[in-house]
């Protein structure tokens, strides 16, 4: 193991610990916000925002996505596209058959 490599891993370990502390703090924030009994639209927005921040920290640092190869990003971009399309399907149905009637 070269000295540079060892220093690099030590630096990464410090990042992992920082991310861990941040995730713990964000978990406490999530629960604390839920106790405020906010209106449902605001509660959903805030809870999902915090969850996205937490998820990004896990993906970027624990899963090393912050420095990954282009092919992995391409696979994930494609996945993200279909994932959003999947989640959008229920929203589209709320437009009272807009898509179906729009075709005629």
């Amino acid at each position: 193991m070269t000295t540079d490599h060892a220093v690099d891993i030590d630096k990464q370990v410090r990042i992992y610990i920082t991310v861990f502390v941040s995730l713990m703090a964000l978990t406490i924030i999530t629960v604390a916000i839920a106790r405020l009994d906010l209106p449902i639209h605001l509660a959903v927005t805030v809870a999902l925002f915090v969850a996205i921040v937490k998820g990004s920290l896990v993906a970027c640092y624990f899963m090393h996505l912050i420095a990954e190869k282009k092919l992995i990003y391409a696979v994930l971009a494609l996945t993200a596209f279909f994932f959003v399309a999947l989640l959008a399907l229920p929203v589209i149905t709320h437009h009272d058959g807009f898509w179906i009637h729009g075709l005629h």
Binding site: T30, I40, K54, G55, V58, F62, M63
Partner: peptide
């Protein structure tokens, strides 16, 4: 193996507020 484990953690991060808090 770790990538899979972190993914499982990531799913829970979204399940927790979605099911328990909202």
């Amino acid at each position: 193996s770790g990538l899979f484990w972190h993914f499982v953690d990531l799913v829970w991060i979204f399940l927790f507020p979605t099911l328990y808090l909202l």
